[in-house]
Write a protein that binds this DNA or RNA. Structure first.
Lengths: 252, 252
DNA sequence: CGTTATCTTGACGTACATCAAATGTCGTGG
DNA sequence: CCACGACATTTGATGTACGTCAAGATAACG
C-alpha cells in the first residue's frame, strides 16, 4: 500500500493558493484529530491535510476495502467501528482487530491490502488517495514519524494477539478481550466497568480463534463466577477487573 | 522503543570530521546492506551509519534483549538466526518469528521492548543506541521510510500468522511454516527444495501454537504422504511444493 | 562408548468443536 | 399493542483434533 521505495527527499511545500474557510474547518474542527495520525501536524499545516482528505460514509455490513485489492486509498475513521480480517478459501475467518475513532486503515507495505476491512456499525471515514498521502508524508516528516509509531503499536498488539491465539485458553482469551475493550473505553475517560460491544458473538469468536458456542459458554462461566454481568448480550459489566486482568495474563 | 513523539524536523547533517578508512569500510563492504535498513542510504552517507553502528556477537542460546526491558538499543542481524517470543508467567511461550541476516530488531513504539530476542545459532549484530538511531532517522528520511516499510511488512506477516494460529489445522500450520522457510532460502537464489532448519522442534511448536509431539507427528504424516523427506531431523526436502502450498493455504 | 538432549511413536485424556434444539431479541406490519 | 418471523444467543449432547504422559529410538558430545 505505501510504496515506500521512492522516498522524495527535500520537501518543498506545495503552494496552497485558495483556502476557503470550510475546507480549513474540515480538519481544524475535527474532534478525533488529537487521537489520529492528523494530530502529528501543527494547526497551521492542517489546510494541506484538509485538501487531501475526502469524507465518506460506509454503512454497517459493507466493505471498506478487500484483501488483495489494489491499495490506492487510505482511511482515517472518525466514527463507528470496523473489523479487519483475513479469510481462507473455505470461509474460515480470522479477525485481526477491531478499529474505531481515530484509527488509520490501510497501513501495509506493497501495493495490495493484506487484510479486508468491513464496517460493523455505520462508519464515517476520511479518505486519502495513495499519491496524496505519499506527498503529505514527504512534506511533513512528523506525519511519517507518527505513522511509524502507529505501525509499531499495531505490531506490538499483533504480537500480543499471537500469544493469545497460540497459547491461551478460551477463558483467558475472553478475559483478555474484555479487559482490552475496557481500555478502549477508558482511553476517553476514567476506567469504565460498563461496556457496550458493537460486534456479534461470531465476530468475537473469529477474533479469539474460537467458535461462537465456546465464546458464549465462556461468557456464561465468567458470569456464574460473578466476574462479569450481562444485562444484555451486547452489554457487559466488568465486576472484578483485577481478577479478569489476572486471568487475562495467565495467572491462574 | 522508538520514541517518535519528538520528531526533529529540518535535518542539518552533523559534521563528520574524521573518517578513518576502516570505519567507512565497515558499512561500505557490508554484504547484508542491500537486504537491510541500511540499504536505504546511498553509498556517500554510509560513513554516518558506520560511526553509529557497533558490531557485537551473541552466542547461541543467549538473549539479545528481553521483553519489558528498556529499549535503548536496536540491532541489525548480519549473520545467524534468532527467535522472537513472548512468555506467560507460567512459562507458556509463543514465538512470534524467526529472524536472520538483514533483519532489524527492536522495532516497536514506546520505551520498552514488546518481545524478547534470543540467539538460536551464534549471531553477529550491528548495535545502534536509541539516540544515535533517532538522529539518523531525522537526518535521513529515506531511513525512516525504510523502517516504515519494514514495520508494515512485519505487520502483514503477523496478520498472516494470526490466521494460522486462530484458524488452521496442525497439518496446515506445518505446511505454512515449511513453505515460508523455503521462501526465506529462495530469496537468495532459486526456489530451493532442500531446507536446513536451525531451530528445534520445540521452537517450531512454540511458533505454530502446537506441542512438540504434534509437530513431530505432522512431520511424519507429510513424510508418509511423500510431500517431504527427512534426511535428518533438521534437514527437510520439499518434494511436492505445489501440494504443500495448497495445504498451507487451506485448499483441502 | 556411555551420557545426555532431541526426536519419534504409542496410549490415553481433555478442551474445544460440532451438531442440535431451546430461548431470547428485535423489527415489521396487522 | 401485539403477533410474527428472522436472527442472535444460550445451553445441552456428543465427537475429535490435539494435548498429555510415557517409553523408545536417534543423534550429539565429551
Amino acid at each position: 500500500m505505501l510504496d515506500m521505495a521512492n522516498a522524495r527527499q527535500p520537501a518543498v511545500l506545495r503552494p496552497v493558493l485558495v483556502l476557503p474557510g470550510h475546507v480549513v474547518d474540515h480538519c481544524t474542527h475535527c474532534d478525533v484529530r488529537s487521537q489520529s495520525v492528523c494530530g502529528a501536524l501543527p494547526a497551521e499545516d492542517l489546510a494541506h491535510l484538509a485538501l487531501a482528505a475526502r469524507s465518506i460514509k460506509v454503512g454497517a455490513g459493507h466493505m471498506v476495502f478487500e484483501e488483495t485489492a489494489n491499495a490506492d486509498s487510505f482511511f482515517n475513521i472518525t466514527s463507528g467501528t470496523a473489523r479487519l480480517f483475513k479469510l481462507l478459501p473455505d470461509g474460515r475467518r480470522q479477525i485481526t482487530g477491531f478499529v474505531g475513532r481515530g484509527s488509520f486503515l490501510g497501513l501495509a507495505a506493497g501495493t495490495a491490502h493484506a487484510i479486508s476491512a468491513e464496517a460493523i456499525t455505520d462508519i464515517q471515514l476520511c479518505r486519502f488517495t495513495r499519491t496524496d498521502l505519499m506527498n503529505l508524508l514527504s512534506d511533513f516528516p512528523a506525519l511519517e514519524r507518527r505513522l511509524l509509531t502507529l505501525a509499531c503499536n499495531d505490531l506490538a498488539a499483533a504480537q500480543a494477539q499471537m500469544l493469545l491465539l497460540g497459547r491461551k485458553s478460551a477463558r483467558e482469551r475472553l478475559a483478555c478481550f474484555l479487559v482490552a475493550q475496557s481500555r478502549v473505553i477508558s482511553a476517553c475517560g476514567h476506567p469504565q466497568m460498563h461496556l457496550h460491544l458493537p460486534m456479534t458473538r461470531t465476530d468475537i469468536a473469529d477474533y479469539l480463534g474460537l467458535t461462537i458456542e465456546t465464546v458464549s459458554r465462556s461468557f456464561s462461566a465468567l458470569k456464574k463466577e460473578k466476574l462479569i454481568a450481562l444485562p444484555s448480550a451486547s452489554e457487559v459489566m466488568l465486576c472484578d477487573l483485577p481478577a479478569l486482568l489476572a486471568i487475562a495474563e495467565g495467572e491462574d
